[in-house]
Design a binder for these strands. Sequence first.
DNA 1: AGTGAGATGGCCT
DNA 2: GGCCATCTCACTA
Length: 182
Amino acid sequence: MKILPLSFYVRDTKKVAIELLGKLLVRKYRGKTYCARIVETEAYLGVNDRACHTFGDKRTKRTRSMYLDGGHAYVYLIYGMYHCLNVVTRTREHPEAVLIRAAEPVSGFKTIDKKLLAGPGKLCREMKITKKEDGLSLLSERLWIADDGFKVPRSQVKSSPRIGIDYAKEHKDLPLRFHILV
DNA sequence: AGTGAGATGGCCT
DNA sequence: GGCCATCTCACTA
């Protein structure tokens, strides 16, 4: 069980999005440890990607942590009631990130129902991830991603358009969503 | 099985 | 004031 090092995150965002599939997301909160296998991600490619919060180099209070170096968490509130967890990639000169859209429970959860963490809002709700974790290092004690040797053959990785970004005009159909085929 | 609406709040213009 | 990188439940068929 190897914690992913900084060098994993400071790379091409699309590559990171694909290689995060099958990795273990681990969260420690109030004495409990939640562990889940990542099965769906989306790449957000920074200042030139209309779907990305940093499109046009938009530096706001919300996007602040996207301008950290790779290996940090970017967490934001959506629809007033849900949070979304992103993994910041590349360097601070390239505000890009990977949205963790879904995972499957491995340990620490009340159920191992595969639907439990299917969706970015549910994942954050069940893993107790909120704005408090925004900007947190993924080499921290409370939140990290690990490789337990689980292999995902590239032939099992399917790409498709990203979800819920109809406003992104010419970028809305880019195949930047990745998930593991069942 | 598939569609539609409501909840709800921080942040941008 | 209006928009969201969502989820759930109620409704149709």
